[in-house]
Design a protein around this nucleic acid. Sequence first.
DNA 1: CCAAAGGCAATTGCATGCACTTTTTGCCAT
DNA 2: ATGGCAAAAAGTGCATGCAATTGCCTTTGG
Lengths: 234, 234
Amino acid sequence: MSGKRSLIRSGTTVDQMVRAIGDRIVTGVLRPGEKLDEASLATRFEVSRTPVREALGQLSAMGLVERRPNRGAIVAVVTQEHLASMFESMAELEGICARFCAERMTGGERRALEVEHQASARLVRLGAEEDYEYFNTEFHTRLYRGAHSTHIYELTVMTRSRLAPFRRAQFRLSGRLAKSWQEHDAIVTAILRGDGASAGIAAKNHVSIVSEASAVFAAVDPASPKAGLAELPS
Amino acid sequence: MSGKRSLIRSGTTVDQMVRAIGDRIVTGVLRPGEKLDEASLATRFEVSRTPVREALGQLSAMGLVERRPNRGAIVAVVTQEHLASMFESMAELEGICARFCAERMTGGERRALEVEHQASARLVRLGAEEDYEYFNTEFHTRLYRGAHSTHIYELTVMTRSRLAPFRRAQFRLSGRLAKSWQEHDAIVTAILRGDGASAGIAAKNHVSIVSEASAVFAAVDPASPKAGLAELPS
DNA sequence: CCAAAGGCAATTGCATGCACTTTTTGCCAT
DNA sequence: ATGGCAAAAAGTGCATGCAATTGCCTTTGG
């Protein structure tokens, strides 16, 4: 083999595979239930099966893929129940983050949060869904960081990853943009006030609402290969 | 070594390795900072290096081991700061579990919780640290289960695993046994009352106290080869 | 025509081998 | 004696190969 790993560089081959496959799952290129063939992935990324196998193992440990012994791996497919549980956890986690933010954010962090938040109002007016979605991710990441708790950060980011496949397109719902901003505003205000309890509640509600918006898509999502039970409405 | 995989059987070889190595980390046989040599582990468990490598990768994804590219793996060594963050998270998570328990546990679960809890009083009177520690684990697991939230359960169990290496011997502290039982009692009472808020607070406090008890050991623990920085408080 | 069984292709699981990186050791020069 | 350098030893990272398991397809009996 002629090693031409210079394209996706950084880290070991396994790390690259974890990122590559993980990204494709999180961004929805690979849909829940889709089969992950080791050989195909190996040729697709021009590596041998070994790093692919290791990557699948790690992704499995992270909960992004599901491994059936001797029967291959598939993108993790979650039940409605588990999905609800993840959203619920997400709400709690974000609540914790917001509460901690209110109590612990530095002056600089508060200022940056406020500034970015205010700036995002423009995206709402323009109806720039794409850009707002990007900002939204940044906003929440800022909250996770602002909690100043490495482990909470890890748990939260990890949970967000696992939810990612199910929350795409949430902003396509009309009016969601403006509502989202208002909810953010409540969180920011409470944080700046140093009111942890309120910030936590606001953040929790924010996620809960998102979860309801996303649930719609989740219900339609099952990309299970077979399970081709009658799906078209008559 | 006559370890033989017949004892830890079930699942693929990789799974067995994950459990085997993970157990040794969680139970403290392998101490934080200790080097994990692939070849040694392979011969120790009578498998080839491949499954060992995969296991280390997964354990790394779980946060139990740390992998330095090209430089081998070590049992995850956490900073004081990160440790505090994990205990803090644990307190929050247990609080959530207890709150959910109060709201969601079935009659049977409540009864079982109560019965087991009362039974444990005997262990306290006998000063049976070993047995109480086992019961304690069961008790908390019961709380995690009773929350009826798969994802919260996963997060909590995972966090507990990562904390395990640092909380051994917590019951050696005199008086800890009785105090622990009283704290459990507050949690159980609140749950049976259906008082989620109180249950959450009680559980959170319980963990916080454990964290303080464990912090003592953590400070002495660093099996890190060097890093002999002054750590004793004046 | 359907159902069960058997064989075949495809795929996973693990072992081994080799290349590359890091670390150690030993030697020489200062 | 010490510092530095070089070569060897150790150990990791990935590819390849082979055995084993699974799923599919064909075949055969009812």
